[in-house]
Design a protein around this nucleic acid. Sequence first.
DNA 1: ATAGTTGTTGTACGATCGTCCAATAAGGCG
DNA 2: CGCCTTATTGGACGATCGTACAACAACTAT
Lengths: 179, 179
Amino acid sequence: MRVLARAGANGASVRAIAQEAGVSPGLVGHYFTGIDALIAETYTHVDAMVTRALDAAVAAAPPQPRARLEAFVTASFTAPIAQPALLATWIAFWSLVTSQPQIARQHDDQYAGYRARLEHLLREAGVAEADLRHAAIAVTALVDGLWLELCLSPQCFSGEEAGAIARRFLGTVCGDVAG
Amino acid sequence: MRVLARAGANGASVRAIAQEAGVSPGLVGHYFTGIDALIAETYTHVDAMVTRALDAAVAAAPPQPRARLEAFVTASFTAPIAQPALLATWIAFWSLVTSQPQIARQHDDQYAGYRARLEHLLREAGVAEADLRHAAIAVTALVDGLWLELCLSPQCFSGEEAGAIARRFLGTVCGDVAG
DNA sequence: ATAGTTGTTGTACGATCGTCCAATAAGGCG
DNA sequence: CGCCTTATTGGACGATCGTACAACAACTAT
C-alpha cells in the first residue's frame, strides 16, 4: 500500500516493495505466488479496511435507518477512505481485472459484498424490495464516481460537497423510487 | 488503443504498439517524447471520440431538452463508448495522473469539459443556476461509476439497466433539486 | 546436541523495458 | 542529376523487471 501510494501502479515493483518492507526481494516469492497475487491481496486488505471503516461509521450513527445510511456515504468521503493515496491500489487492481479471470472473480465478489451491505441499509431505510437492486447499484456508482473524481481532481470539489451530493441522492432513492 | 484493449495497461509497451502499427519501435520516439506522452495523446483521442459520440446522440435526439439529456446518458452505455476495451486506456491514463502534474492538468481540463457540456444540457432542461454545478458533478459521477462497473463486472448489470438507472436519476435532478 | 523444518538472504538469469543513435530509404527541390 | 530535409529502420545500451535457486540463519522438537 505504501509503495503503491508513493510510486504509483507502475512503480510498485517487487524490489521497491521489499525495500519498503525492509526485507530482501526474494522473500516476496516465498509468501506470494507472484507480484499479481501480492497486488490482489493488497486490494483485499484495503477493501477490508474500507469495509471496517464503513461499518464503524454506521455503528457510531444514530439508530435511525436513514441516519445510518447517511453515515455510510458520508464516511466514504472522509479519511481513511477518501485518500488519494488509496487510488493507486485500486488502479493497480483494476488493471489486472480484464486480463486475469481469477482477479475478475475477486472483483465481482468484493463488489457484490459492497452492494449487499448497501442493500441491507437501504432495505431498513424503507426502499421497496423490487427497487433494492437498482438502488444499491445506483448509490454504489454515484459514490464510486464521486470518490474517483475526488481522488483524480481533488481541487474540483471537496469531500464535504461529495458527501452532500450523495446524501441528497439518498433522499430521492428513499422517497421516490416507487415506480 | 488496440494494444491497450488487447494487452492491458501493463502490456502496452513501445514495442507492442509499434508492432501493432506495423512500424519499427524507434519510430515512436520520433513522433512522441515518450511512452507517457503517447498514452496521454491516446487518451485525448479517445476522449474526443467519446465527445463526438455523445454530441451525435444529443443531435439525433428530439429537440426537447429533457430528451436530449436522456440521449446523452443513454449513449454513455452503448457502443462505441461502453466498450470494456476502452477501460484499459482510461486506467493507463489514470495511473499517470497522480505522478505527472502535466497529465493531472490534462485530466482536469477534459473532466471540466465534460461537466461543462453536461451543465449546458442541464440548464436547458430547467435546472436552477445555483444547483447546476452540483447537478453536473452528480450526473457525471453516477454515469462514470456505472460505466466503470459495467466494464469491470459486465455480468452484474446490463447497459440498458445502467441507462435506466441514470435516466431515472435525471428525473430527480430536473424535478427536485430546488433547495 | 542434532536433525529437520522454516525463515531469509543475496544473487543470478533471461526477458523486457524506454530511450537513443548511426545508418538507410524516400521524397521534394534546386 | 545532386542536395537537403524528412521518414524510418534496426539494433545497441543501460536499467529494471519477475522469478528461481542455492546458501545461510533461526527455531523446534526429539
